[in-house]
Design a protein around this nucleic acid. Structure first.
Lengths: 342, 342
DNA sequence: GTGAAAGCGCTAACAC
DNA sequence: GTGTTAGCGCTTTCAC
């Protein structure tokens, strides 16, 4: 059915090995031979069979990205970055999505991926349920991982946003506007990201002599809907809250909607800031201040780090020591966080 | 390095083939033998090598999804549906993203995918540049495709939203509210989706005795930014416009932001409706009316259709005739499209 | 420079 | 019920 190396070899009157050399751009082929082979390849429309190559080489030139959902801005933007870099470095991308609350799934996924002989794996999924335990020493050698936004782990290469810094900066900005009772709309409690941002919020408040009262924090899903629910809780518990820092822009959107219904004017008597700086945020009403992070770049960085691990493993030296790559997000000020003058 | 069939066979004192039978759940293995083999498999931690299996069977149990971006709601939600169904049917998912304006890329992608022996391909990408020409008869037999939201093509199985119907229904809703000069904010001209929605808008206006003046249409990128730009154009050309139907919710968001700055009150003297009904739309200000589509279901449908093609090809019968699967979107009314009374 | 032969881990005929 | 023998398409070792 499909054209194989030996078809080409026969047609060109050379051995299989010679064709293989040409295909892989190796030396030791005379110019005329090479050219004849290339011609036959073009004429026959030969394409190497990646499965066969992978089987012979014991590597698939494929990396897997395990993500938690894709319908929210952060994860999908991240995967875009991953895909771009993956393609540029000559790998294919296998996509696997984690389901919420399916016990034992991370083991099943890992088994599946290693059965597919992926060369490495990018784990962009929060520690939900058992998913934190999949990293075991035996595994690290077999299937190099890079973890995204995970809790720091000295054994594993991690690529993250500096969540603590971002949250701290957000609070600092709010405080500098004169807001005093600054709430936090947290994402799901299991997300390391949310834990770190919460800590940044806490520390920021403390640094400004403000009170990180636990009642000023409310938790919700990381959607507009979740943000709205959390905001309702917060307003009920602390009606005197005068600003909120939301886990992400979608939650901030939901919060603004609830605040409006409650008669609060965002940008006047309520300050709001989000996290992500998604492209839509600038068009919300009022335009949303946010903590900008370059998520796609994070994805590229993750792939580069992973490929380094993969190549090092192939070279056979001792495994390179895990690194922690942190990127610094920055506050983008729009109207929602200002203390407008009426 | 890794455990193979023959390791298991040796350890269990049976032949390779017997182990293979057990692994693949085939009959003709006595109960005690089967159990002994299973034990050894568990003890050794054996996992089948998917590459080897693929090579031997001439199929990879992998399908590819080619998408155009992933940072917008539609495409990413679609891929979520695809991933779910793919996993349930026992396939892996290879993700490839199309870059805007890279000539010849579709041929390169196809070559790459067929070299990876994918069993089929889901093409969820607009006809940008040369990408419409990749479907050629020779290819259809080799690599079964399912096209999403493409222009109808009698040779190819297509899964789409009924864009014409959705647009028509949106216009009908706006007209029923009493709006008379209804504009259309189109997405990029090359998108079949945009072309079909435009036609639906046109036909809807005509059906209501309204004028589909070309000046009532403005085109932009399918982002909030693009919607804002298109809205500016539209307002400049036809300041008397009293409602707009936007290609998607993000564009509607941008349009509302511009309208507000221009002193128009959405939901009072300007009606706005989007398309997609993304989860955020309900939290915009004002809450956005939209045309709801079940995008994830579309993804599942696409995978099912593709797997049908794949299995049919394996059975070796004549290729099944291409089908067209259309899903009907529905208008969801919120405040933005209403003609409020002051 | 070039080629022959073995083998990657599995499945598929066909024997026993 | 179970085993033997060829491949699948490629890379790799080593000989020429």
């Amino acid at each position: 059915m499909s054209v194989t190396l030996s078809d080409v070899a026969q047609q060109a009157g050379v051995s299989i090995k010679t064709v293989s050399r040409v295909v892989n751009n190796q030396t030791d082929v005379s110019k005329p031979t090479r050219e004849r082979v290339l011609q036959v390849i073009a004429a026959l429309g030969y394409h190497p069979n990646a499965l066969a190559r992978g089987l012979a080489q014991q590597r698939s030139h494929t990396i897997a990205v395990v993500s938690f959902g894709l319908d929210r801005y952060g994860p999908s933007r991240f995967v875009v970055g991953v895909e771009r870099e993956t393609e540029e470095l000559g790998y294919s991308l296998l996509l696997t999505l984690l389901r919420r609350s399916r016990p034992g799934q991370s083991d099943a996924i890992l088994a599946h991926l290693s059965s597919r002989q992926v060369d490495g794996i990018i784990w962009q999924a929060p520690n939900v349920g058992d998913t934190q335990n999949w990293i075991r020493p035996e595994r690290l050698a077999q299937l190099p991982p890079v973890v995204i936004n995970g809790l720091p782990n000295p054994h594993v290469t991690t690529v993250s946003v500096d969540n603590h810094h971002g949250a701290h900066a957000a609070v600092q900005h709010l405080a500098s506007q004169g807001w005093r009772r600054i709430g936090f709309l947290a994402g799901p409690a299991e997300f390391p990201m949310s834990i770190e941002r919460r800590q940044g919020w806490c520390d920021g408040l403390t640094a400004y002599g403000l009170d990180p009262d636990p009642a000023l924090m409310a938790e919700g899903e990381w959607t507009a809907q979740g943000g709205a629910a959390a905001m309702e809780t917060l307003l009920a518990r602390r009606p005197d809250v005068d600003a909120v820092f939301a886990f992400n822009d979608a939650m901030a959107l939901g919060a603004m909607s609830v605040a409006r219904r409650a008669g609060r004017r965002v940008g006047y008597d309520l300050g709001v800031i989000g996290f992500d700086d998604a492209p839509d945020a600038a068009f919300y009403e009022p335009p949303l201040s946010s903590v900008h992070q370059k998520i796609a770049d994070l994805g590229r960085e993750a792939v580069r780090a992973l490929v380094r691990l993969i190549e090092a493993k192939l070279k056979g030296g001792s495994p390179p020591s895990p690194v922690l790559i942190l990127s610094r997000p920055e506050v983008v000020v729009r109207r929602s966080s200002l203390r407008g003058v009426q």
